[in-house]
C-alpha cells in the first residue's frame, strides 16, 4: 500500500510585475492507495495534480509530509525502494530518441538492479504484451506517436512494479491509442496491480476508477467511489459532480 501523509509542496510563484510569492501547490493532502485499486485524480489545470503525483512517485521531495510504502505491515520510506516499486509515466517522461527501445530497456534493467538474464527475459515478455517486436531495435526518434507511447509504457513495465502512477496518460492520443492504454490499466488491475492516475476525461475515469479524488487549489475537496460522489451532489454523472463541486469552490472551470 502506498501511503501519503499531510503532503505539502510550496513553490515560489511569479506574480504580476515579477514579484515573488510563496504558494502551496499541494496543501496538506493525505492519500492511502490500497493494493489492486485504481484511483483517479481529477481537478482543473493548476490544481496540483502533477505535483501530487510527482511527490507520490518520489520524483519531488515534499516541503513537509511523507510518502511511504506499507508492505506486510512494514513501513518503508526509503526513496530508492519506493521508486523500485513504482512505474511512473507522464507527458513529461520522454524517451531518449537516439537509443533503441531495447537499449533503453537494458539500461533501465541495469539501473533497477536486475541481472542481464532477468532483463532479457522481461524484455521478451513485454515485447509480447505490447507488441513491440517490429520496432524494438529502431531508434526511438524514428517511431510513430503510437509506437512511442507503447515504448514509453514498456519503460515503466521493465521492473515489474506493483504500483503505476500515470499523469494524464491518454492526453492527446487518438481513440485507438487511448483505449489501448485503458485496456492496459484494466489488465494490470486484474493482475492485482495498483494504479494512480490523473486525467481530464471524466467518462474515462468513471468507467475504470474504483475511487476518485477531486483536488482543487492543492486541496482534496471530495473523494469516494463514483456512486458515493453522485450521492454527495445528487448529479447524474461524474462530469456534473465535478462541475458542481468546482463551482462551489468558486472556480469557473472551462472544459
Amino acid at each position: 500500500m502506498l501511503s501519503a501523509k499531510n503532503l505539502v509542496k510550496t513553490f515560489e510563484k511569479n506574480e504580476k510585475k515579477g514579484k515573488k510569492v510563496l504558494f502551496n501547490a499541494v496543501d496538506d493532502v493525505s492519500i492511502d492507495v490500497n493494493k489492486g485499486e485504481i484511483i483517479g485524480i481529477l481537478g482543473p489545470n493548476g490544481a496540483g495534480k502533477t505535483t501530487l503525483l510527482r511527490m507520490l512517485g518520489n520524483l519531488m521531495k515534499p516541503t513537509s509530509g511523507e510518502v511511504s510504502l506499507i508492505e506486510d505491515g512494514e513501513v518503508v520510506s526509503d526513496e530508492r525502494t519506493i521508486k523500485k516499486n513504482i512505474g511512473y509515466l507522464s507527458g513529461n517522461t520522454k524517451l531518449y530518441g537516439r537509443l533503441s527501445t531495447r537499449e533503453l530497456l537494458q539500461i533501465m534493467g541495469n539501473i533497477y538492479d536486475m541481472s542481464k538474464e532477468e532483463t532479457d527475459n522481461r524484455i521478451e515478455e513485454i515485447c509480447k504484451i505490447l507488441n513491440l517486436s517490429e520496432f524494438i531495435d529502431n531508434r526511438i526518434e524514428k517511431l510513430s506517436t503510437g509506437q512511442t507511447q507503447r515504448a514509453s509504457i514498456s519503460r515503466c513495465l521493465i521492473h515489474s512494479p506493483e504500483i503505476y502512477i500515470f499523469d494524464e496518460p491518454t492526453l492527446g492520443l487518438d481513440i485507438l491509442s487511448s483505449s489501448a492504454i485503458i485496456e492496459f490499466i484494466k489488465n494490470e488491475k486484474k493482475k492485482g496491480k495498483t494504479v494512480v492516475y490523473s486525467t481530464h476525461y471524466m467518462e474515462e475515469a468513471e468507467a475504470i476508477c474504483d475511487r476518485i479524488i477531486f483536488i482543487n487549489k492543492g486541496k482534496i475537496i471530495c473523494q469516494g467511489t463514483v456512486e458515493e460522489l453522485k450521492k454527495v451532489t445528487g448529479d447524474e454523472s461524474v462530469r456534473d459532480v465535478f462541475q458542481t463541486l468546482i463551482k462551489k469552490e468558486g472556480v469557473d472551470y472551462e472544459f
Binding site: K83, G87, S90, N92, T93, K94, Y96, Y112, C156
Partner: peptide, 14 residues
C-alpha cells in the same frame, strides 16, 4: 529540451 530528465528521475537514482 528533449524532456527526458523526468524519465531519469522516475528511476531509483539520486
Amino acid at each position: 529540451e528533449r524532456g527526458t530528465l523526468e524519465t531519469v528521475l522516475t528511476l531509483p537514482v539520486t
